[in-house]
Design a protein around this nucleic acid. Structure first.
Length: 464
RNA sequence: CGGGGAGUAGCGCAGUCCGGUUAGCGCGCAGCGUUCGGGACGCUGAGGUCGGAGGUUCGAAUCCUCUCUCCCCGACCA
């Protein structure tokens, strides 16, 4: 066919509002066109590339026993009510009513539909294990779409779902996907790392993400240069300093005018940041005041804190709320506060005689100690790993890289099968819940990520 | 949702502060001609509710009010 007949013209100049190379070049090449925020048409050239990516995915998932099918984009809300996610998921799920006034949703993922199908189709252990998948449209009303096809609201995703007798079966399917995904991304020419991740709204016991390295990535991954650890920053661990053994000194109040930041305080007191305790205030979804305490040289990781508190969301506390528990912004400490949950990072437990606030403007306390001067409701790891901190395995300083999440694998366990009553009869005639896993790859995002990693200043260079 | 920016021809922009011919420029597009073994050139031309609504004014792309949309940072989310 002649280029003149190709639907989708090329552009000498990119639209003024695009930023990412993949976005710019895919627009200029006539591959994609925006219809609205985070909503794109794939023109013939773009669709052709995406289909090739999908074909690679299809071949590799078929190779591990996947059976391709197709599940709907519009779901009755009932299945989402059964799993509890109708209430649990926020406005990123679009809800509407059909003409019969029935609650409906647009699919953002398909665990519910698979669980619903599984309870109808599976009754015997003889039918398992099973692996089904489809390549289907998802709608997620993201608060902010950006970057062309990297983060959109409507996108296509290959999602596969494994159904197994037990954890051992799940482990095998998880491992199969692990290697299948490695083959897929290698065939796509992507430079990526596999990292441990938060299970987020999916729930379940384990999760890994395939992160393609890119300066435009939205995630930060921490990588050990020795290759023995890689994790998303939201769950990344690091080797903690050894417990400091020294006698507990008496607590004393000192005047520290104008030291509202931890750096000013450390300078004023002439102590390292690691000898201060920092207070960070949140209010959880339950309405509880969350008082987080962490050593001054570290920062609170909200994902870890959410997990430690069991709160689904955390919002920064207001000055009024801080005063209500007897604390003072800028001079906060857990000593003497009330009506709040105190969550303490491990660093505080292992470092004695810290400088903390006095809950009084212009004053701090020297030599505060957990257990003697205040109690914690929870002691946990709530610290953010950053570049330079030691690898939890070998202790080497980790590096941080920006990355785009191109795929993820989740061990769901029985979270969905139990709420749906998706069970099978085992060899003894006992009813057991099916053990599930789910595995996703965004085909459009993969395509854009390939473009992100394979271009020069003249344009795209697709891997052959 | 908070902060910032932008909507003028298919794309990139100027004009807006300081209201006043038929709203311009480059690229692209069409016709004609020239050229043609590496994205060629010339002439001619088509194409615009100046995002939308309301208001001020003799007169609004330009001033005022409201509103919609898009982009960026953050929040959020995976």
């Amino acid at each position: 066919m002649r280029m003149a007949h190709l639907f989708g013209r090329t552009l000498r100049e990119a639209p003024g509002d695009v930023e990412l190379p993949s976005h710019k070049y895919m627009i200029r090449a006539g591959m994609i066109r925006p219809l609205g925020a985070g909503i794109y048409s794939l023109l013939p050239l773009g669709w052709r590339v995406v289909r090739k990516v999908e074909q690679v995915i299809r071949e590799e998932i078929d190779a591990i026993g996947g059976q391709e099918m197709l599940m709907p984009v519009v779901h009755p809300a009932d299945v989402w009510k059964e799993s509890g996610r109708y209430e649990a998921v926020g406005p990123e799920m679009t809800r509407f009513k059909d003409r019969g006034d029935r609650d409906m949703v647009l699919a953002m993922t398909h665990e519910e539909v698979v669980a619903d199908l599984a309870r109808q189709e599976i009754n015997s252990y003889r039918q398992l294990p099973m692996l089904v998948y489809h390549i289907q449209t998802k709608w997620r009303d993201e608060p902010r779409a950006r970057g062309g096809l990297i983060r959109v609201r409507e996108f296509t995703m290959k999602d596969s779902y494994s159904l197994d007798l037990d954890e051992a079966g799940l482990d095998l399917q998880y491992r199969n996907h692990w290697y299948a995904y490695e083959r897929i991304f290698r065939r796509c020419g992507l430079d990526y790392v596999i990292v441990g991740a938060d299970t987020g709204m999916m729930g379940g016991s384990a999760s890994h993400e395939y992160m393609a390295l890119s300066e435009y990535g939205e995630d930060l991954v921490l990588i050990c240069p020795n290759g023995d650890y890689a994790a998303n920053q939201e769950v990344a661990l690091f080797k903690r300093d050894a417990k400091v053994n020294e006698p507990l000194l008496p607590m004393e109040e000192v005047a520290t005018p104008d030291t509202t930041t931890i750096q000013k305080l450390a300078d004023f007191m002439g102590v390292p940041l690691a000898r201060t305790a920092k207070a960070v205030f949140f209010v959880g979804e339950s309405g509880d005041f969350i008082f987080a305490v962490i050593r001054g040289d570290l920062d609170v990781n909200e994902t870890k804190l959410r997990k430690a508190t069991g709160e689904r969301t955390l919002t920064p506390a207001t000055v009024e709320q801080i005063h209500a528990i007897g604390a003072e912004a800028g001079y906060g400490s857990p000593v003497g506060v009330r009506n709040c949950r105190v969550i303490v990072d491990e660093s505080i437990r292992d470092t004695p005689n810290l400088v903390a606030g006095a809950n009084k403007v212009g004053y701090h306390l020297r030599n505060t100690n957990l257990g003697r001067d205040y109690q914690a409701d929870v002691v946990a790891d709530i610290a953010s790993a950053v570049a330079g901190l030691p690898c939890p395995h070998c202790g080497a300083p980790m590096i941080a890289e920006r990355a785009i999440e191109v795929g993820n694998i989740f061990k769901l366990g029985t979270r969905y099968s139990e709420s749906f009553g998706a069970t099978y009869l085992d060899a003894n005639g006992d009813s057991k819940p099916i053990v599930m896993g789910s595995y996703g790859i965004g085909s459009g995002r993969v395509t854009a990520t390939i473009a992100e990693q394979h271009h020069d200043d003249k344009g795209l260079i697709w891997p052959a």
